[in-house]
Design a protein around this nucleic acid. Sequence first.
RNA 1: GGAGAGGUGGCUGAGCGGCUUAAAGCGGUGGGUUGCUAACCCAUUGUCCUGCUGAUAGUGGGACCCCGGGUUCGAAUCCCGGCCUCUCCGCCA
Length: 430
Amino acid sequence: MLDRKFILENVDLIKTNCARRGVEVDLGQLVSLEEQRRQKQAETEELNRRANEASKAIGKATGDQEKEACKDEGRELRRQKDALQGEVQQLEESIYQIQSTIPNLSHPEAPVGTDEEANLELQKGATPIRTLDFQPLDHVQLGEQLDLFDFDAGGKVAGHGFYYLKNDAVLLELALQHFALNFLIKKNFVPMITPDLARTEILQGVGFIPRGPETQIYSVAQSDLNLIATAEITLGGMYADVVLQADELPIRMCGISHCYRTEAGAAGRASRGLYRVHQFTKVEMFALTLPSDSEATLEELRGLECDIFDALGIPFRVVDTATGDLGGPAYRKYDLEAWMPGRGEGGTFGEVTSTSNCTDYQARRLKIRYKEKGKKGTHYVHTLNGTAVAISRALIAILENYQQADGSVIVPDVLRPLMGKDLITPNTSV
RNA sequence: GGAGAGGUGGCUGAGCGGCUUAAAGCGGUGGGUUGCUAACCCAUUGUCCUGCUGAUAGUGGGACCCCGGGUUCGAAUCCCGGCCUCUCCGCCA
């Protein structure tokens, strides 16, 4: 959420930004409602002040008659105040509703465009794409041969989009988690395993909209709990309503959680197998920084994501996400897209990680602030998030890139000690 | 899950319908005293919204004693609901 004062003082800027992001917002309505709200708020406070005065007068009043007169006056003033306050509250709700649909500002260098077509390729990973002298299989076929997944059982037990990992896929998942964690701990991230459920209020603070008609979020019946879509929710939520000391920043965490997404309306092409699923495990980086540090931190997170996929030996490219594809909270976002030889016709890049600088957009709603010693007032921190490893997509990239003509899959160097084997074949499978 | 107790400023902790402008202590900040440190003395001390005066300084108003409702002229204080914490019991990997 953007600051209301800032919005009112920069209507044209916001308008331009919304247009770039392909978001329609009735700013005129917001301005007019806010004017009314302020007016009525001031009147409410004045009535309240008078009512407070009247109440105090009762204590000092002498005769019964005088007291009754004061009571009547107080009653009447409170009645008027309550009525007006009701109007203020209604205005406030309408304003908040508009305000929360306004996306974050955009980094001046973010490519302008309405959708991912406008994303700008920034760099390639260290690993070149292999030229294969055989027809590559996709991860679903590989998994079938190697007995790594059970999509049928997933469908039977939980429905389409769920799956079982089996045999070496299980070892791969754990090895990937462990690898990412070890890597990030060395980079001073505090490792965390977070709850997989969170309150609606927390989800909203982070920028997710549970329980709406087009929500991506599963919610638990007869409770205020929702299955999280990313540990960003729980890691950010940890610090909701907290005022930090400036010298406690930056705070850097990496959290492992399961991620649950309804993926409403996303079924079909290019989401075969593990690519678009309702549940997966993810190691997520999350950072709280001083505003002056967030841009550098975003570059650092991007670098770490590159290092991880370079270490895994997976070819990828990095794209600077176009304004229209940023979502609400991100000021700037980079995606890593790994080469997936079995995807589409002859292979395509598929998103494997994503890192965003949300500036103060999440912090404002979550009320995560910092204060500097000896200085008055508080400021909102900046929040950033980035995928270290989303296991399901990383599995696709590993299986498809490391496959060999005979259908076996070489285990990436860095995972061998964690997995206890160099090669996945039908025979070697657990 | 059941039964009790409780949630007050950065912390400890009083207040239990108007004497609260939330006591007191600790801590923090500024100053004083002082060979150094410690101790002591004085002053100061939150957040959010908002009005006014050229202003991020000053000054006035409103809100905030876990959250949301209610009673009342008036609620930290009474009532209801929620959340959380502690103690005991039960259940459980």
